[in-house]
Structure formats: C-alpha cells, structure tokens
Design a protein around this nucleic acid. Structure first.
Lengths: 191, 191
DNA sequence: GGCACTCAACCAACCAGTTAGTAAGCTCGG
DNA sequence: CCGAGCTTACTAACTGGTTGGTTGAGTGCC
C-alpha cells in the first residue's frame, strides 16, 4: 500500500463523519473511527489534534458547504425549499451532525462566521422580496428563514422509523414541505 | 434522615432527567446522577436496572404525559399550537429528551403504544375537521400534525444561543409559531 | 430477628490520548 | 547509479483515568 497522507486524511474524515453522525460526540469511539479508516489511532491525533477538534473540522467544512450550497431564490421559495429538502435528503448525515452540535455543543458550530454571514444574506434577500410585495410579510425575514430551515431539514427525521422511507413516501414528504412553504410565502391576491 | 424510598426514587428520576436532557444517554454519567440525587449509585441499579432502562422509564412517563397533556382543539389550531409552544417552553428538557431519543435510540421511545395512540387520535380529529371544511385540506392530517409538532417543539431550540431568550423574544417566537399554524390551517373564504 | 433500605469500596472493561519505534520514500554528494 | 542520511507516514503497545455495574457489610424500623 503506497503512502498517501492526503488520502489517509480523507479516509479519516469520511470515517469520522459517519461515526459522529451515527453516535454523536460522546458516543463516537476514536478506535472505531481509526479502524474504519484503516489506519492507526495516533495518526488521527497527529492530523486532527483530538476528538473534539476532529468533530469541529468535519462540522465546519460540511455544514458550511451545505448552508452556502443552495442559493436562495426569493421569486420561488417553494422551489427553493424543495431543493433544500433534496439536499438534506441526500446528505442526512449533515442534518444529524447539526443536531448533535445543537445538543452536545449548544450549537456553537452554527455560530462560525461563514454560516452566520450566509444566513444574514438570505434574511436580507427575503426582506427585500417582502418589501417588494413578492413574498408575504406574515413573518419576519429571520422567522421565515427559520421556518423554511426547520421544515426542510428536519421533516425526514421526524418521520423516520427504523427503515428508510420509500421513494414514493419521500415524494409525498417533499410535496408536503413545498406546500407548506408555498402557503407561508404566498403574498395573497395583488391589490 | 428518615427513610423514604418513594422520595429517593423521585429524586433519582429528577436528577436523571436533568442529566439525560443535558448530555444524552452516552454523555450522561451514572455517578453524577447518583450524586445529584444525593444517594448511592447502587440504589439507582436496584430501582431502575441500568442506565438505558432508567432513560426509558423517564422517557416513557415524561414524554407520554407531554403528548397527551394538551388536548387538540381542531376549531382553533393556532391557539392549540400556542399552548403546545408554551408547554414545550416550560419543559425544554422534554424536547431535548425526545431529540436524544431520535438520535441515540432511533426514536424507539416515540413508538410506545400510548404515544402512537394519542397521535393517531389527533390525526383522526384533524381528518374530521378537514372533512367538515373547518380546516384547510392543504396537508394530510398526519402531515399537518407533523408540521405543528415540528414548529411548536423545535422552534425555541433552533433559535437558542448560549443565553436563554428574553420574555419579549419568547413572545415574538410564539407569535411567529401561531401565525404559521394559522396560515397553514386557514380553510380560506367559505363558498 | 428479619427485612427493606443504604452505602463505601471494589472491579473489569473501556477509552482518549501518548510514546517510542519502524519503514517507506526523498535528497544529494559522489 | 548508489547509498548514507533525513523526512514523512505510519504503527503496536502502553498509560492514566473513567465508567457502568456489583458486592457485602451495615443501619434502623417493625
């Protein structure tokens, strides 16, 4: 086996992502991550310092990418919600990581500069759309954003039983989510 | 100090509730629970078997009570949502326990008979209200129930920073939540 | 005395993090 | 082309401390 520090780093990150998403920080086992990455435990320490910093590294890169990946479309928020929903469905581990972060680290991972900036930008875009009358002013921009995030990211988790949902069930859920966002953002009949 | 097994039991349950809500199952420490309950660790085992069963005991009684405590009012679902929101605000530990259950036990705590029955009854009540035209049929009864649960229970958690929200902020959040539910359930102009 | 209850001390397993060492590639003078 | 010397990637084995769970010796009420 050739030596490949970048590849090993990546394998560790992948293994740790799966382990942390599955079991959280307290429940994750460093030995299990190392075994799953096919390398020695101490490598993990030379590369990433310790368990907490490993989680931080994963969280910052994964979640920050997630938040910035889907640009907001204030002209069709239901469609935007649908795309968010799809992303969260194809990356369920990110949702779980974010929940672990909330529960185990009081959400400190969500307070890094990049994420805060992206959220602020989205809220401002929503505020402009509301001023222009294209979006209902029922909720404040921040509240509307929170509602969309809540519904798109956590809907599958709330429904989940032991088995993962069928494609048909997934499509139903997606329809419900977009219907909710559509209803929330509809500006009503134009004057 | 007089002997009082019932009191000790209760103190253990209270301490364990706080510990589990704060740190989850994997993060909770049995010694800390015992110390906080002011009793010996072994008592905890004679009364509750082990750590997991202690969590189960707490979860089943607390969450089941929570789900059944606020009866659904299909004639004013926004108000119902407001009451749910209040309950979840005054009992944030229950929300956290439910999240830990989802993440660490794949939500098995939510699948006990009592909770499932209560949810089914609420969905049926919603279905009747929709048939009668009092509630929008935008969403299926189960989806509408899921949306209400999601928004009322997790809204404060998603907003939470290190410090707990001020009463004024809490009132704002409550208004947003009831506005969302109101918008989602509004049957529209009567024919 | 018997019984329900209480506790300090203990144990084996586990776990995050460390250490001391090995070996694969790279470099550079010859 | 070569091989001594150095750097980098990696590892087995260990350490100090923690953790869930047990046990056996009390303690006080009937």
């Amino acid at each position: 086996m050739a030596r490949d520090s970048q590849g090993t780093r990546r394998r560790i990150l992948e293994a740790a992502t799966a382990e942390f998403a599955e079991r959280g920080i307290a429940g994750a086992r460093v030995d299990r991550i190392a075994a799953s990455a096919g390398c020695n435990k101490s490598l993990l320490y030379t590369y990433f310092g310790n368990k907490d910093r490993l989680f931080e590294t994963i969280f910052d890169s994964l979640v920050a990418e997630m938040v910035t990946a889907t640009p907001i479309d204030t002209t069709d928020l239901a469609c935007y919600a649908g795309r968010l929903f799809d992303r969260y469905c194809t990356h369920p581990e990110v949702v779980r990581l974010a929940l672990w972060d909330r529960l185990e680290r009081d959400g400190q991972g969500m307070r890094v500069a990049g994420i805060v900036a992206a959220e602020t930008a989205k809220a401002e875009a929503l505020a402009r759309a509301q001023d222009g009358g294209a979006v209902s002013a029922l909720l404040s921009p921040a509240d509307l954003l929170a509602a969309i995030t809540l519904v798109t990211s956590l809907w599958p988790l709330m429904q989940a039983h032991d088995d993962s949902p069928s494609p048909a069930r997934l499509a139903e859920m997606r329809t419900a989510v977009t219907a909710i966002v559509s209803r929330l953002t509809d500006p009503g009949p134009t004057r």
